[in-house]
């Protein structure tokens, strides 16, 4: 009994610590920006908004803090958590260390839809983007599931080849469509290919945060099933995991998370690949720990990447996808080399 209490207490302590880290990251995301705004101003705006205090702050400064930076940071956190969870779940489900929504082409599928909308001019409304993102993601994933099923029977490596071919094909789609664009269209498309958080406002938060929380819950509920999947679908089935149902739910959750995040901020690569691997290194392979750690690290990582993207070159915003790639591409290489060494 006391053992259970102690582990509950440890769980509470770890959760509180994780939340504190997340809060600190969010604060950093609000304080650091192009225009220098003091911490005191940030605290004042937050207290005014949250507790209804009075303020003499300039409405523009207050607006920047409350309406630009806070939503942007919250969406960055949701997006980081959702994308890294998607990567983690895909890696476990298809037993492929290189699985990631960006590399597998879930995000690419979503960007293809978005880019097609931009250039071919098929509707312009956000809802249209959103619908297309979902459709493309769904289509992309079903291709991929077929490839995964084949690969599963023949062994992981072939499956991975199949995934990457589909992703490459979809990225080629994007490039094909992009080739028929002029310079200014191309600049608009960059948004979908490299990610952009500058247009994030409160309505985006009300979509991103619930989806990230929902996805997190869906993953956490299936933590034990995901452990079982590490030994392959047959072993999972023999351990009593309802394989089809779990696959359906988790792939649905991954698709939804990736689709929503891409529809809000464009495709941001490498988060889903590097964060889960880094966290396996830190907390081990059990999903009950791995899922919260991955979500937290992904959230903090993307907030940090957004800060770096704003500060790297003064007066200019580097696309956030470039920042994540700067970290992610070497990470990708390390994972590839380690995998080869093991094979």
């Amino acid at each position: 009994m006391s053992g259970a209490t102690a582990s509950l207490r440890a769980l509470a302590a770890v959760s509180a610590g994780g939340l504190a880290v997340l809060m600190l990251a969010v604060m950093a995301g609000i304080v650091i920006g192009e225009a220098p705004l003091p911490l005191s101003a940030v605290l004042e705006v937050l207290s005014v908004r949250l507790f209804g205090a009075d303020t003499l702050l300039d409405p523009i400064d207050a607006g920047i803090i409350w309406n630009y930076r806070l939503p942007r940071t919250l969406v960055a956190a949701s997006c980081g958590a959702a994308l890294s969870l998607s990567g983690l779940v895909l890696q476990s489900l298809v037993r492929n260390a290189l699985a990631d929504p960006y590399l597998l082409g879930v995000s690419a599928g979503a960007s293809t839809g978005a880019v097609a909308v931009t250039i071919l001019g098929v509707g312009g409304e956000l809802i249209e983007h959103f619908r297309r993102c979902l459709c493309r993601c769904g289509a992309g994933l079903s291709d991929r599931r077929a490839a995964g099923a084949r690969g599963g029977r023949r062994g992981g490596a072939d499956g991975a080849g199949g995934h990457r071919r589909v992703a490459a094909f979809q990225r080629a789609d994007v490039l094909f469509i992009a080739k028929s664009a002029n310079a200014e269209q191309a600049r608009g498309i960059m948004f979908w290919l490299l990610g952009n958080l500058s247009g994030v406002r409160w309505p985006d938060v009300t979509l991103a945060v619930p989806i990230a929380v929902l996805g997190f819950a869906a993953c956490l509920i299936h933590a034990r099933a995901l452990d079982a999947f590490s030994f392959g679908t047959e072993s999972a089935a023999s351990l009593g995991v309802p394989v089809r149902r779990v696959q359906l739910v988790l792939i649905g959750a991954v698709t939804l998370m990736a689709a929503v995040m891409v529809s809000l901020v464009g495709a941001i690569g490498f988060v889903g690949l590097v964060i889960p691997h880094a966290m396996r290194f830190v907390v081990g392979v059990r999903h009950f720990r791995l899922i919260p750690a991955t979500a937290l690290a992904g959230a903090v990582f993307l907030i940090a990447a957004d800060i770096v993207s704003r500060m790297l070159i003064a007066g200019q915003v580097v696309p956030i996808g470039v920042v994540t790639a700067l970290v992610g591409a070497p990470g990708f290489a390390i994972i590839l080399i380690r995998n080869r060494a093991r094979a």
């Binding site: 192009e34 225009a35 400064d61 500058s198 007066g315 915003v317």
Partner: peptide
């Protein structure tokens, strides 16, 4: 150039 609304508003 692409400049943020934050910079323009300030």
């Amino acid at each position: 150039p692409v400049v943020s609304w934050e910079t323009i508003a300030r």
